[in-house]
Design a protein around this nucleic acid. Structure first.
Lengths: 206, 206
DNA sequence: TTATATATACATTCGTGTATGAATAAATGC
DNA sequence: GCATTTATTCATACACGAATGTATATATAA
C-alpha cells in the first residue's frame, strides 16, 4: 500500500475512531469486531493495527478525544467553586452539563458506550480499572462541590455533603442511562431539566 | 452418557443457570462462552443444548427464575396502592425494594447483568426488546404509583406525577448501578436508605 | 422396550495478531 | 532544487485458536 501523507493518516485515524464509536454504540463493544470497524472506516484491519494496539485502546482514545475536551472544564469548575455563593455557580454548571448531553451526541454516545454497552470483565483488568477511574472521578468531583456548598452554608439544614453528592450522582447516572437508551424516547425538556431543578431546590437553600 | 433422573436433570438445569449467572456477572454476557458455563456447572456443552436453545434464552431464564418471584409482588403492590394514604404503603414498599437489593444478591446480580454487563446490540433484536420491556415496566409501575399518590393529594404542591416518577426512577437506577459495581464499596445504610429517605421527603407531603 | 440426558466428535465459521510487501511521502545530501 | 535514500501507511496473506451448532453414541430411567 502506498504511503499516505500525515494529513491523510490523521483522517483515517479519525475515521476509525468514528466508525468504532458508532459500532460500539450500535452493537456493543465486545460484539464489534476489528473487521467491522475497519470496513466502516473504509480501510482494512491493517490500518487499524497501524493506529491502535488493540480494541481496548480505542475506547480510551474515544474517551480522550470525544469526551475529555468538553468534560474537563466542567470538572475544573466544580472542583473550584467560589467560596462566596457557590450555589449559583453550581446550578449554572449543572445546566452546562445537561446541555452538553442534550446537544453533543458524541459525548453522549461515549458515555452510553462506557456505561451501557461495554461489559465489565475480569478478563480485561485494564479496562475495568479504566471504568473504575471514571466512576471514582464523578464521585470525587461531586463530593468536593457539595463540601464547598456545605461550607458556604448553602445546603438546607440536615443535608450532609456525602449524602447529597451521592443522591445527585444517582440522579445523574440514572438520567444519563435513560437518556441514552436507544429505545424509550427521552426528552430533556420534559424528563431532564425539571427533575434536576426539583432536586436542586430540595437540597440547596439558596 | 447415561440417562439421568428427572430430579438430576433439574439439578443440572439449576447448576447451569447458576454458573451462567456467576460468569455473566464476572466477565460479561458476550464474553462468556457456553464452554465456560458448562464447565463451571460440571457438565459439557451437550448438557447446555439440552436445556437452552442458546445463550440469549439463558438470560431470560435467569430473569424469570431469579428475579420475577421477588419482583412481581412488589410490582403488584405498587400498581395497586390503596386509595387512602397510599404514601405510607409506598414508603414501605420502596423499603422492601431496597432490602431486596441489599439482602438478595441473586436478584442484584441479575440486575447487574442486565444493566451493566450485557451489551445492547442491534444484532440481537430479541434481547434488545427484552431489555426494552424491562425499562418500560419500571416506568409504568412508578408512574402508576405516583398518580395514585397525586390523586390522594400526598404529593407536595407543584410536584407532578410524571416528573416525580422519572426522578425516582433515576435515583433507583443510579443507585442500583452504583450498588452493583464490583469496585467502589457500596454501603446501603450509608449510600442507600438515607438518600431515598431524603428524596421521598422532598416529594411526599405526608 | 423405549425415551432421553448428556458426553463426544466433527464441521464450519470467525476473530485475532503478525509477518510481509508495495508504493510513495518525507528526509537527506549535494 | 533535484536525486537518492529511508521511513511509513496500509493492504494482503497466513497461522492459530476458539466458539457455535449439530450429529452421534451410550447408558440408564421410565
Amino acid at each position: 500500500m502506498a504511503r499516505k501523507t500525515k494529513a491523510e493518516k490523521e483522517k483515517t485515524y479519525q475515521a476509525l475512531l468514528e466508525a468504532g464509536a458508532e459500532l460500539f454504540q450500535k452493537q456493543g463493544y465486545t460484539a464489534t469486531t476489528l473487521n467491522e470497524i475497519a470496513e466502516r472506516a473504509g480501510v482494512t484491519r491493517g490500518a487499524f493495527y497501524g493506529h491502535f494496539p488493540d480494541k481496548s485502546e480505542m475506547i480510551k482514545a474515544i474517551w480522550q478525544e470525544h469526551v475529555m475536551p468538553f468534560f474537563e472544564p466542567i470538572r475544573e469548575t466544580l472542583l473550584n467553586l467560589p467560596e462566596h455563593d457557590p450555589a449559583t455557580r453550581f446550578r449554572h454548571e449543572i445546566n452546562n452539563l445537561l446541555e452538553l448531553f442534550e446537544d453533543n451526541n458524541v459525548v453522549g454516545r461515549a458515555f452510553f458506550i462506557i456505561m451501557h454497552n461495554m461489559e465489565i470483565s475480569v478478563k480485561d483488568r485494564d479496562l475495568a480499572e479504566f471504568l473504575d477511574d471514571k466512576y471514582r472521578l464523578y464521585k470525587q468531583v461531586l463530593f468536593c462541590a457539595y463540601t464547598r456548598l456545605h461550607d458556604a452554608r448553602q445546603l438546607r439544614p440536615g443535608v450532609e455533603p456525602e449524602q447529597a453528592a451521592m443522591g445527585f450522582l444517582y440522579i445523574l447516572i440514572g438520567m444519563i442511562n435513560m437518556a441514552l437508551l436507544p429505545f424509550g424516547n427521552f426528552d430533556f425538556a420534559r424528563d431532564g431539566y425539571p427533575v434536576f431543578e426539583h432536586y436542586l431546590n430540595s437540597v440547596l437553600s439558596a
